[in-house]
């Protein structure tokens, strides 16, 4: 589904990604771990299409399309969803309004009939129940006054609404307590299928207890330095990131 070849990127003259190569197939969950500054969030941002990041080399193929040529809205329309680490608050735009506009723009792009008010409302209710979101929150301005946990749950709620082919979860577990984590992880797992894929960017192993990855990759200084199965996450938990740094230095 997603093929990244030797991706290099910088932000404000600082080179962050130094050649990332990664292949993600349908049905797979890949965890990207690494110490602070390793380039995890940069990778997520480049995939989502943030303008601040300049791609200086490499290519990204998504379902046969050159991802780097697509605008952020087209990447979303092609089926990529990013759950942000710090979801922004947008006063004056309600979650309901926002979701309806988004879903219908995506459907229009894909040549699907637009959802009428009733169908849309039913879809919303179903996904709200999944993410244990109170209906009152959705008529309020997007993310405004939401707690950290509520914002993250709202991200996964949106993911459930958009039904993406590839979801990128950028440190979705950061700032969550156990209960919020449970709800978020449950939502993510419910959405998992053999037809879609996920890239879970995380600093800690905790989320991976709930959202069990098929592959774990360790990012260090903008490169994937180690890949393995889910056991790798436990190893990191036990040994810390210094082990990787030493490991890499030796090579």
């Amino acid at each position: 589904m997603l093929t990244i070849k030797n991706l290099q990127a910088k932000v404000e003259d600082k080179q962050i990604l130094n050649g990332i190569t990664l292949a993600v197939n349908a049905g797979e969950v890949h965890a990207i771990m690494g110490p602070n500054g390793s380039g995890k969030s940069t990778l997520a941002s480049v995939l989502a299409g943030r303008e601040d990041f300049e791609v200086t080399g490499g290519e990204i193929d998504f379902l046969g399309k050159d991802l780097l040529r697509l605008e952020p809205e087209d990447r979303a329309r092609e089926g990529i969803f990013m759950a942000f680490q710090y979801p922004v608050e947008i006063p004056g735009v309600s979650t309901v309004n926002f979701m309806k506009t988004a879903i219908n723009q995506v459907r229009q792009y894909r040549g699907l009939p637009l959802l009428d008010a009733v169908s849309f409302l039913n879809l919303m209710k179903e996904k709200m129940k999944l993410m244990e979101i109170d209906q009152s929150l959705l008529n309020r301005s997007l993310n405004q006054g939401f707690s950290g946990g509520e914002k993250k749950r709202n991200e996964i709620f949106q993911m459930a609404m958009m039904e993406p082919k590839l979801a990128i979860l950028d440190e979705t577990d950061s700032g969550l307590d156990i209960d919020a984590l449970r709800v978020v992880a449950n939502g993510v797992n419910t959405l998992r299928s053999k037809n879609n894929a996920m890239i879970v960017v995380t600093h800690y192993q905790r989320l991976l207890d709930y959202v069990v990855p098929d592959f774990v990759h360790v990012l260090y200084k903008g490169k994937i330095v180690k890949s393995g199965g889910k056991e790798l996450a436990y190893e990191l938990e036990a040994k810390g990131y210094d082990w990787i740094k030493t490991d890499v230095a030796v090579v």
């Binding site: 952020p72 809205e73 990447r75 979303a76 969803f81 922004v88 947008i90 926002f98 979701m99 723009q105």
Partner: peptide
């Protein structure tokens, strides 16, 4: 707000 713009775009809404 550029951040807000990007957020909306990331959900498939045209710029």
């Amino acid at each position: 707000d550029e951040e807000a713009l990007f957020y909306l775009q990331s959900r498939g809404i045209s710029k």
